[in-house]
Design a protein around this nucleic acid. Structure first.
Lengths: 218, 218
DNA sequence: CGCCTGGTTGATAAAATTCAAAACTTGTGG
DNA sequence: CCACAAGTTTTGAATTTTATCAACCAGGCG
């Protein structure tokens, strides 16, 4: 329990000082909403297990996914600037998240926390840029390959298998995130399977030729 | 001179405490590089006049623009996380930038600076998301309209004309930024001109029907 | 068991890219 | 200050990529 809600990006000596509220995980069921746009929000959330998707709804009522988050991710950083959520954030499966209250963090006022938070946000800006580069000026095949590699890398960094994992999101969600039609994503998956680069069994994905996939993604 | 290098996003009471080095502007000529990838970087830069573009070079040697910045923008936030620049940053015209050294900022250690920086970075994450939404799942016409409206809004917020301004970047740069071919961007400009929504004279752009343009951008 | 969501596949249509050529700007040196 | 070269913008036609429409299949759940 002590370790379950350690916010990634904060060094361990600081963790003990964090308010207890930051260490109690909350369980969300599939389709539960973590937060919604315009809701006052002065916290970050650490994804301890499961997965969530963040999205906006445009004027036509159409959903647009801005990000997916898995174990080890911290979400809600874009809300700091005006103290309110700007996206919907919804659990894609049963998930555990820890709330990290910002005012508690600031009240403690120990050096290092602010800098760590800064680094965290800075890193996120870089990630957003990378994702942007992956989507702009690339073919459908490159986008999907890059998306799969991104998941693979993230899971590996958090102690999971690099070449065999469950895709928590639907093809529709992947398509939406990558700016493609569902059918296009499905066709790319089929094509990659035919080339023996990946394989799927229900929502489990197997990467059979990581090197080839990586090259496609570049 | 006192006011020329005030970093936007920091409240005025804090500015006086900033190191003098943060208040001396540096002039860059067209095509001068502000920083390059992997270069150690522990500063932000405030664009006081002119404009810059930030871009990466991919494995094939192709340039990909991640952002444009005009007067009032602060750049370099994605470098905080690892102390090194991740993109090229190049002046598109004669420009003045002020360097804001982070260690001076932290050394001062007055409450508020860190929080202000956090808000700044948080806001940037939101901006990056917004730009992403503008590019994914939109037509070429929507992207260009949204791009022009974005420039117009930014310039207006900084005391310039909302409906008549110089485009500091080439069509090629706009196309690259929006993930389109140059020819497509040119065609959209032509189409908007034919509909009397905009007009151009050399690199000066006139917005003749702001309401229509805004609607297209949505 | 049958409905419903999610996934796949095929045919057609739309959008944007690519290739090619010409017109226009901008910058430079005589 | 003009002329020329280099870079930029525009336009047209053909091609490619992806979206859309439509049908069908599979699995999970009431």
């Amino acid at each position: 329990m002590q370790s379950i809600c350690v916010p990634a990006g904060l060094v361990s000596s600081e963790i003990d000082k964090l308010d207890k509220s930051s260490r109690e995980p909350h369980v969300y069921s599939k389709r539960d909403m973590v937060y919604s746009p315009d809701q006052p929000l002065h916290s970050l959330f650490a994804v301890k297990s499961g997965s969530v998707k963040c999205y906006t709804i445009d004027s036509d009522g159409k959903q647009q996914i801005t990000s997916f988050h898995l174990t080890g991710d911290i979400i809600g950083m874009e809300s700091i600037s005006n103290g309110a959520a700007v996206t919907y954030c919804e659990a894609m499966e049963t998930s555990m998240l820890c709330e990290i209250k910002l005012n508690r963090l600031f009240a403690q006022n120990f050096t290092g926390v602010d800098k760590n938070l800064l680094r965290l946000l800075s890193h996120r800006i870089g990630q957003r840029n990378t994702h942007y580069l992956n989507v702009v000026n690339t073919t459908a095949e490159q986008r999907v390959a890059s998306f799969i590699m991104g998941l693979s890398d993230h899971l590996y960094e958090h102690g999971f298998s690099r070449n065999e994992f469950k895709l928590p999101m639907t093809r529709t969600d992947i398509a939406n995130y990558l700016g493609l039609a569902v059918e296009t994503v499905s066709r790319v998956f089929s094509s990659l399977k035919q080339k023996d680069i990946i394989d799927t069994k229900q929502s489990i994905l197997f990467i059979q030729a990581p090197a080839e996939l990586k090259q496609m993604a570049s």
